[in-house]
Write a protein that binds this DNA or RNA. Structure first.
Lengths: 218, 218
DNA sequence: TATATTTGTTAGACATGCCTAACTAAATTA
DNA sequence: TAATTTAGTTAGGCATGTCTAACAAATATA
């Protein structure tokens, strides 16, 4: 049995040690910070997680997930991202509202629920933030996302996420006719300021370099 | 803030004191029984719930919900039944599988989630067990359900629930061509054994009195 | 009504998960 | 390298929600 608190620690450790390939170990303070607890509390939990075989660390040493621990963490992330997708696609939640509720839903225990939810959503590959959703085997199809600013002229790409989640930016994005999965064609670029001409649904717009740098595409 | 444990007590008290009009008070042992805890534990929690103003009781006296407590309980039941409906209608769960998962989902805190879920399900009035779903104001549209055995000859009714949730009974029900919301026409009744002739989707069947008494209809 | 049974309460213990305060080890920098 | 800063640990405490064992009150029954 994995408690909700334990699940949160495993998930945080996964993000600290597997999101960036160069960084495969974490520290107590860092972990405590991410979970909004004191280092003492994190240290305490770490002992339990080690005891259960989900985390490997030695006193004053670096922390990492064991294979078992990683499997659990990925399963939680899978659930989190499937729920986010559900909230966004079916229940009219916005990009910035999904996370908080998914934090709760990710702890629901039911294998069938996750399988059926995934099927109901038609096996989505990315969540509303553009992050990959692990499949049932725990495999994560890593997606090399770029910012729109990096896309070459005359190429077409798909919007998968935004970096800036402020509602003012989101409103602007919507005004451009953009939404998740929108196809964007890069018509041209002005070198002196980096601004771009784009086409979305046959509508042409001009956007600043800054805006382009906040749009993540595949 | 209401903890999950507290929510479970409120819900149990609602069922003990409001499901049957004649019974408006509960006892410690009864409550403990329903929640699968010891009477000592229930007694302990009761003090906290009284403290918070959700339950009224005096030492060695009977227990009942206050108006505040009832509002909370109804909201939990509303969530439970909406989730059951979601699992049944959208995620291919069977009648007997929905309850366990809904027990977890009912504790998710998000007003928007409940509102949107209700809308997504098109404002259902009854859950897969035929129980009424309270609306957002907490109003419960009580439905006077009857067993099929009570329906007069030549009348047509709608199946809303089964009393016996065993999978063997459910399988038999399915074999009769019945599902939730199926229309059943009572063709006739044999008085000597109470068995009935019914018609479902133009198919006639004969069922025993016992079976008819386990089918709840509106 | 006196006794037995059922129902409800109290006291004390324990696990989980959090905290603060005091301390120790490791890393940085002067 | 010695001093300072940062990172990590330990000890002890607390709230929540559970338990068992012992007891008290209310109810049922002989």
């Amino acid at each position: 049995m994995v408690s909700q608190a334990e699940e949160n620690y495993l998930k945080a450790l996964f993000h600290l040690t597997s999101d960036i390939p160069e960084k495969t170990e974490a520290g107590t303070n860092e972990l405590a910070d991410m979970l909004d607890v004191t280092p003492a509390t994190a240290n305490n939990m770490l002992k339990k997680l080690k005891e259960k075989g989900w985390v490997s660390y030695e006193k004053y040493g670096k922390i990492s997930l064991t294979d078992k621990g990683r499997v659990l963490a990925v399963e939680i992330i899978r659930k989190h991202r499937l729920w986010e997708t559900f909230l966004y696609e079916k229940l009219n939640f916005t990009w910035d509202e999904v996370h908080e509720v998914a934090e709760q839903l990710e702890h629901i225990q039911s294998v069938k629920l996750v399988q059926q939810l995934e099927k109901f959503l038609d096996f989505p590959e990315i969540d509303p933030h553009g992050d990959p959703i692990p499949n049932e085997k725990g495999e994560i199809r890593f997606i090399k996302r770029k910012t729109l600013a990096e896309i070459e002229e005359s190429k077409t790409c798909k919007l998968v996420a935004v970096k800036d989640n402020s509602s003012s930016f989101l409103q602007y994005v919507v005004k451009l006719g953009l939404g998740l999965s929108s196809k964007i064609k890069v018509l041209g670029r002005r070198e002196f300021d980096g601004s771009m001409e784009i086409e979305v649904n046959k509508v042409r717009s001009s956007i600043s370099k800054k805006v382009a740098q906040n749009l993540l595409v595949v």
